[in-house]
Structure formats: structure tokens, C-alpha cells
């Protein structure tokens, strides 16, 4: 180590070693926190961008003019949405008037576990868009619910929910065709689309019931 080896007493040696370790810890913790502080704005920006990419899929940016990611309501775990954990709901506004709710929902009864969805529901209760964000459905069979895996690129399966509203399609028709509803499905995989259709229906019903409360809670400035 040092050029002139000195002899230390045992406690002196221990104190010296501890001091050196302490200095190393300080330096590298400082390095870490420096890197964290320095990259924080960029990380937050890219996290927000990822979120916005997802929101863009279900609600065109031209339809609202507020800072959607800052216009939030914290939701408690909700059985109607299939969410076992708290989530965040976003309110889209145009000229201050609320135009749509963007929120997450889970179809708990997929063929292979939970299917996570992001849904936007307009103020007139029509679905603006639905996308599957996470699922474990059988590749090549049930995974067409994910737009990237859908072989039909012109009209992917998930887009048939766009524009649907309970005013036109009642709850009994809001099912896959096999169950007497109007939702298309691919032969061989019925469980998956059935689960998604049910979750979307429940989410729309929930949005219709909660809409006024949600809009109002935000206007009062009740921030979670």
C-alpha cells in the first residue's frame, strides 16, 4: 500500500481501515447521487413520453389541449376495473371542458392470467380507444388482442371497440359473437376476447357511473 510501512496498534489499524472504507462509501455514494440528480430530468421526461405514447394510442392528441399527465385523479383499488392496486386516472380537457377519461383496467379472466388494458372513454360515453398493455395469452392464438401481434393490420381486432358506446350497443350485445353479442373473435381463441370485451364493458359502465364525480373532484382541486 504505502511506500513506508508503518506499524499500527490493533485499534489504530481498525480505525484507519474504517476511515478509509468510510471515505470510499462517501465518494461513491456522492457519485451515485450526482448521476441520479443529473439524469433525473431526462429520465422523468422519457418516462412521461412513454406514458404519452400509450395515451396517444387510445386518444388522439388533437382532441385535448391540457397537460393530461398532470390532470390526474388517484384511484383506490377497484373491483369494477379489476385493479387490485391503486392506479391513476387522467382527464383530457379541451378549452377547460372535460372531454375524456383515460384509465387502466384489468381483465382478470384471460386464458393465461390477467390482461392489462388502457382505455379512453369520451364524455358522451363512447369508447375513444382501447389497447392491451400487458398479457400472457398464447402466442399465435390469443395474442391478436395486442395490436402489434395482430395479423390484420388494416383493422386490428382491438380497434373494433373504438366508437362503441352503451347508447348504441347495450350490455347484452357487448359480448363476443359466440355468446350472442357483436364483438368479432378469431376461431380457436374465445376466452381471450371474451375477457377483454367484458373488461371493456365494465370499464365503460364504471366510467359512466363515476364521470361526474371524477370531473368534479378535479375541479375542486382535490389532488391526491
Amino acid at each position: 500500500m504505502t511506500a513506508t510501512p508503518r506499524t499500527f496498534s490493533a485499534p489504530g489499524m481498525a480505525a484507519r481501515t474504517a476511515a478509509i472504507l468510510f471515505v470510499f462509501v462517501i465518494i461513491f455514494t456522492g457519485l451515485l447521487s450526482g448521476a441520479y440528480q443529473w439524469t433525473k430530468p431526462a429520465l422523468e421526461a422519457s418516462a412521461a413520453e412513454e406514458k404519452m405514447k400509450l395515451v396517444d394510442e387510445v386518444l388522439p392528441r388533437s382532441e385535448y389541449d391540457n397537460k393530461l399527465l398532470e390532470d390526474t385523479v388517484a384511484l383506490p383499488p377497484s373491483a369494477e376495473l379489476g385493479l387490485a392496486e391503486p392506479s391513476t386516472l387522467y382527464i383530457a380537457r379541451h378549452g377547460g371542458k372535460p372531454v375524456a377519461l383515460v384509465f387502466e383496467a384489468v381483465a382478470p379472466d384471460g386464458y393465461a392470467g390477467k390482461i392489462r388494458l388502457i382505455i379512453a372513454v369520451r364524455s358522451n360515453s363512447a369508447v375513444a380507444g382501447v389497447r392491451v398493455t400487458q398479457h400472457k395469452e398464447t402466442p399465435g392464438l390469443g395474442d391478436y388482442i395486442e395490436i402489434k401481434k395482430d395479423k390484420n393490420k388494416q383493422q386490428p381486432w382491438i380497434t373494433q371497440f373504438t366508437g362503441l358506446s352503451l347508447a348504441e350497443v347495450n350490455a347484452r350485445e357487448w359480448r363476443v359473437k359466440k355468446d350472442g353479442g357483436r364483438i368479432d373473435y378469431h376461431a380457436g381463441a374465445t376466452v381471450t376476447p371474451r375477457a377483454v370485451a367484458k373488461a371493456v364493458l365494465k370499464a365503460v359502465q364504471w366510467a359512466n357511473a363515476q364521470r361526474e364525480t371524477l370531473y368534479a373532484s378535479q375541479r375542486k382541486g382535490v389532488r391526491p
Binding site: F28, L31, L32, A35, Y36, W38, T39, A42, L43, S46
Partner: peptide, 12 residues
């Protein structure tokens, strides 16, 4: 510490 810093810098 270095792995974490590399991870953060890459991400940013």
C-alpha cells in the same frame, strides 16, 4: 455504484 451510474446514464 458504476453499474448503477452506467444504467442511469444509458437511460438518460
Amino acid at each position: 455504484a458504476l453499474v448503477t451510474v452506467v444504467d442511469l446514464l444509458f437511460n438518460a
